[in-house]
Design a protein around this nucleic acid. Structure first.
Length: 785
DNA sequence: GAGCACTGC
C-alpha cells in the first residue's frame, strides 16, 4: 500500500538533524553526506519523533479497524497538549468512536444524493474512496460532536489533512447550519475557486448550485448555495451590510494562522456577534503553528488536532552564520547538484532583482561544470512575472545528458512559493532565512518593504515544501542556534504592520464604536490607530468625537484606501467622475507601464507619448483613455509598452467602482474636455484625498514633505518635465533614497479651498513652506476684497 | 535618474 510510506508528520516533526554542513566546496564530501547525522534528543524532540511515527493511514479508513492506531502515540498527543490547555480534545481511540458512530451518522442513505435526490454518479464513489483515506475523515465524528457542543472550535491540521475540503462537508451533512449556509473563508482567490470546484465534485453537484464560491469580480453562488467558499475580504464586505452575518449558520475561518488583515477583523467582529447569535457556529482552522492562540482568544473553545500527511524532511544547518547569503545560496545549489540524488530544488530569495541575478550566476556556474553534472533548468518565480513565464516552474527537469546524468530543475522564488504557489517534485529546499516584509511607520505614515529574518513558522513552512511528493531535505543557511534563539516564533500579524485607515473605517462601518478598546487578537500600536482616526477626521469621514459621518459612510462602500474613496466622492461635485474613476482604477493595479530591462529607452519613449505636463496622474489617465480608444487591444498595448493585463484589471476595477457609485446615488458626470476647468477639477478632486501628501520645493532645490518635513525626490519614473513648487504624491517609497512616486502639480491656493482645517496656518509650525502659504493666503484675501 | 514580498475588497 503506497500510503504506508507516509508519515503523519506535523511541522514540528520534520526530522531535525543537527548535522552541520559546511558551504565550503572543498569539503563537500563531509558537508552534504547524510551519514553521521546526530539527532537531537531533547524532551520535546523525542515527543515529536514519537508522534511522527509513520502510521498506516490506509487501514484507518476502514471503519472498524483499531489495531493500526498506535496507542502510545495517542497518549503522547493528548498529554503533550494537556498542559497547554485543558480544553484540548484528543481524537478518541478508534474503538470508542465506532460505538457511537450510529448515533449521528449523516451517511445513512448512501445511494441517494441528499441535495439532488438523485443517485450518486460512479465518479462520486470513486472520489469517496480517496476522501476516506484523508486524515480529516478520521476526525469527522469528533468534529461534528464538538461543533454541536461548543460554539467555537479550533481545528489544527497541516498540509494534506484534507480539512479545507472535508470539514465543511461534515458540518453540512450533519445539518449543523440549520437551514442556513456554511461559509468557508480563504485568504486567496484561487484557493476559494479551486476548492469549491473540488468540493462540488466530491458532493456530486454542479458548481455554483449547492456548492459555490464568491470572490471579487466573480460570484458563482446562488439561492441554492448551502456551502460557499469565499475570500476573507469578501466575507468582510458582506459583513458590512449584514454585521450579524445572519445568512450563515456556520462560519469556517480557514488558514487562520496567516493572520491577514481581513481575518483579524473578522475574528473581532465574530467575537462580538457570538453572544448575540447563539445559533452561529465558528470553526477556526489553522496550521499547527499557533492554534493555541486562537483557543485563548475564543475562551473555552476546544481544540482538535488533525494530522497532516507529509513525507519527512531532514533539516540541515550551517555551522556558522553566512556573511553573504546570496553567495552561500548559489554555492548550495551547485553542491546539491553535484552531490545529491535526482530531485528539484527550491531556493527562497527576497525579490526580483536578487532572483534574476542568482539565476544568471547559477546558470554560469553550471555551465562551467560541463557535462560532468546533469543539465539544469533554472526558473525565476515572483509575482510580477507574466503568467506565461510563471508557468515555467511546472516544466519538467531536463532529461539525462549524453553521459546519462539526470537533469535537475531549480526554482528561485520569493515568498510566493511559501504559501501561494505549490510546486510538485521539489525535494531540496534552500532557505537563507530572509524575506521582504511590509512594515509601517506611523510617524511618517509610510509603509515600506524591508528585508528581514523570517519567523520559525515561516522556516517550517518553507521546509515543508520539500516533502510534498517524497522525503526531502532542507538546507537552512544559518546555524541551528540562530533558528532557536534569533527567529521569532511567528511573523507579526499584518494588522501590526499596516496603515490602519481602511481598517478603522471598516470597523466603524461594522458598528464597532470603540476602535481603541476593540478586542483585537493582537492590538495595534495606539499611535497607529490615532493616526488613522486623525486622517479619517481630516478626510471628513469622522466627526471630532470619532463617529462616522455621511461622507465616511459613503467612503466605506468602496474597496479602496479612504483617500481614494474621497477622491471619487469629490469628483461628483467637481464634475470629473469618469476621469477620477479611471485614475483611481489604474492606481489600484500593478504598474501599467512596462519597462523591460533590455528595452528601457524604447519603453521610456513610448511612455512619454502619454505624458501630461501637469503630472503622472494625468499621464495615467491618458494611457487608460488611449487603451479604451484602441478597444482594449493587447497587441496595441504590447507595441506601446503597456501592461495589458494590468489595464484590463483596471478596467474591471473601474466598472466595479462605477457600479458602487451608481448604487450610492452618485451622478456619473464629467465636464467636456474643452472646458477650461477640465484638468484643474481633476487635480482638485485628487487633492481632496491627498492633501496630506503634499511636498514643497525648497529654495535649496529639494522637496520637503509638508508637515512631516522629510527630504524627498521625485521618482525618476515621473513624466513631469519640470519641478513644480507644490505637488501632491500618491506614494512615499523608501529605497535608495526617499522618493515620492506618481506626482502631480498643484496650486497652493487650492489647499485652503480643499482642506482648510489641515492647512490652518495658526496650527502649523514655522517653515519655508508655511511662509509661502502665508503669502498665498494674504493674496487670496486681498483679491477677495 | 530607478526598483516593486504577498494577498485582498
Amino acid at each position: 500500500m503506497s500510503s504506508k510510506k507516509l508519515g503523519n508528520s506535523t511541522d514540528d516533526d520534520v526530522i531535525k538533524k543537527s548535522k552541520r554542513f559546511s558551504l565550503n566546496p572543498s569539503d563537500k564530501e563531509d558537508s552534504l553526506s547524510t551519514t553521521n547525522i546526530s539527532s537531537k534528543s531533547s524532551q520535546k524532540d523525542r515527543k515529536d519523533l514519537k508522534r511522527s511515527h509513520p502510521k498506516s493511514i490506509g487501514t484507518d479508513s476502514s471503519e472498524s479497524s483499531s489495531s493500526s492506531s498506535d496507542s502510545s502515540s495517542e497518549d503522547e498527543r493528548s498529554s503533550s497538549k494537556k498542559s497547554a490547555n485543558h480544553h484540548h480534545v484528543p481524537l478518541e481511540p478508534e474503538q470508542k468512536r465506532a460505538k457511537n458512530e450510529k448515533s449521528n451518522d449523516f451517511d445513512h442513505n448512501p445511494h441517494l444524493n441528499p441535495f439532488t435526490n438523485r443517485p450518486f454518479s460512479p465518479a462520486y464513489y470513486k472520489i469517496l474512496e480517496k476522501r476516506k483515506v484523508l486524515p480529516a475523515w478520521e476526525a469527522r465524528q469528533k468534529v461534528v460532536e464538538l461543533v454541536k457542543q461548543y460554539q467555537v472550535l479550533v481545528l489544527q491540521g497541516e498540509t494534506g489533512s484534507g480539512k479545507t475540503t472535508q470539514v465543511p462537508q461534515f458540518l453540512l451533512l450533519a445539518g449543523i447550519a440549520k437551514g442556513k449556509a456554511i461559509a468557508c473563508t480563504q485568504p486567496r482567490r484561487v484557493a476559494a475557486m479551486s476548492v469549491a470546484k473540488r468540493v462540488s465534485e466530491e458532493m456530486d453537484v454542479a458548481l455554483g448550485q449547492e456548492v459555490g464560491y464568491t470572490i471579487r469580480f466573480e460570484d458563482r453562488s446562488g439561492p441554492k448555495t448551502v456551502l460557499k467558499y469565499l475570500t476573507d475580504g469578501m466575507l468582510l464586505r458582506e459583513a458590512m451590510n449584514d454585521p450579524m452575518l445572519s445568512r450563515y449558520g456556520v462560519i469556517i475561518l480557514d488558514e487562520a494562522h496567516e493572520r491577514t488583515l481581513s481575518t483579524d477583523i473578522l475574528f473581532g467582529l465574530i467575537k462580538e456577534v457570538l453572544p448575540k447569535r447563539k445559533d452561529l457556529k465558528i470553526v477556526v482552522m489553522s496550521a499547527t503553528l499557533n492554534a493555541e492562540k486562537f483557543q485563548e482568544y475564543f475562551e473555552g473553545a476546544p481544540m482538535i488536532d488533525v494530522p497532516g500527511r507529509m513525507y519527512p524532511v531532514e533539516i540541515f544547518y550551517t555551522p556558522e552564520p553566512e556573511k553573504d547569503y546570496l553567495i552561500a545560496a548559489i554555492r548550495t545549489v551547485i553542491q546539491i547538484h553535484i552531490v545529491e540524488d535526482e530531485g528539484d530544488i527550491l531556493l527562497f530569495l527576497t525579490g526580483e532583482e536578487e532572483i534574476e541575478q542568482a539565476c544568471r550566476e547559477i546558470r554560469d556556474e553550471v555551465k562551467k561544470l560541463g557535462n560532468e553534472v546533469g543539465d539544469m533548468l533554472v526558473v525565476p518565480l515572483y509575482s510580477s512575472l507574466p503568467p506565461a513565464q510563471q508557468q515555467r516552474i511546472f516544466d519538467q527537469a531536463p532529461p539525462k545528458n549524453k553521459r546519462g546524468v539526470p537533469g535537475r530543475k531549480v526554482v528561485v522564488s520569493t515568498n510566493i512559493a511559501e504559501t501561494s504557489l505549490t510546486i510538485d517534485g521539489i525535494v531540496y529546499v534552500i532557505d537563507p532565512g530572509f524575506a521582504k516584509n511590509k512594515i509601517y511607520n506611523p510617524r511618517l505614515r509610510v509603509e515600506s518593504l524591508l528585508v528581514s529574518p523570517i519567523s520559525k513558522a515561516s522556516a517550517k513552512q518553507r521546509a515543508g515544501r520539500a516533502g510534498r511528493t517524497r522525503p526531502g531535505k532542507c538546507f537552512r543557511l544559518y546555524p541551528e542556534r540562530a533558528f532557536e534563539k534569533e527567529l521569532k516564533e511567528n511573523t507579526y500579524a499584518e494588522i501590526l504592520r499596516s496603515n490602519l485607515n481602511s481598517v478603522v473605517l471598516t470597523l466603524l462601518k461594522l458598528g464597532i464604536q470603540d476602535i481603541v478598546h476593540f478586542d483585537y487578537m493582537d492590538p495595534p500600536a495606539p499611535e497607529t490607530l490615532m493616526r488613522a482616526l486623525e486622517e479619517l477626521n481630516y478626510l471628513g469621514a469622522l466627526t471630532d468625537d470619532g463617529k462616522l459621518t455621511q461622507i465616511g459612510m459613503r467612503m466605506s462602500e468602496f474597496p479602496l484606501d479612504p483617500q481614494m474613496s474621497k477622491v471619487l466622492l469629490s469628483a461628483e461635485k467637481l464634475q470629473c467622475v469618469n476621469e477620477a474613476v479611471s485614475i483611481i482604477a489604474t492606481l489600484n493595479v500593478p504598474m501599467i507601464f512596462l519597462r523591460p530591462k533590455d528595452q528601457q529607452s524604447e519603453a521610456d519613449a513610448a511612455k512619454s507619448r502619454f505624458a501630461h505636463e501637469d503630472g503622472d496622474h494625468l499621464t495615467y489617465l491618458n494611457a487608460f483613455n488611449a487603451y479604451k480608444l484602441k478597444k482594449e487591444s493587447p497587441d496595441w498595448c504590447y507595441d506601446h509598452y503597456l501592461n495589458s493585463r494590468a489595464l484590463k484589471q483596471a478596467n474591471d476595477v473601474r466598472e466595479q467602482l462605477l457600479q458602487i457609485m451608481v448604487k450610492i446615488g452618485m451622478k456619473i458626470q464629467s465636464k467636456p474636455m474643452n472646458d477650461p476647468d477640465y484638468y484643474q477639477n481633476i487635480k482638485k478632486a485628487i487633492l481632496s484625498g491627498y492633501f496630506m501628501q503634499v511636498a514643497h520645493l525648497q529654495r535649496a532645490g529639494h522637496y520637503l514633505t509638508f508637515r512631516d518635513d522629510q527630504v524627498v525626490a521625485i521618482h525618476p519614473s515621473s513624466t513631469l518635465d519640470h519641478k513644480p513648487e507644490w505637488c501632491m504624491y500618491n506614494e512615499f517609497v523608501l529605497t535608495s533614497k526617499n522618493y515620492i512616486r506618481t506626482v502631480t502639480e498643484i496650486r497652493p491656493d487650492w489647499l485652503f479651498e480643499i482642506a482648510p482645517e489641515y492647512f490652518d496656518l495658526d496650527e502649523i509650525k514655522n517653515s519655508e513652506a508655511k511662509r509661502k502659504l502665508e503669502r498665498v493666503y494674504k493674496r487670496m484675501k486681498e483679491s477677495d476684497e
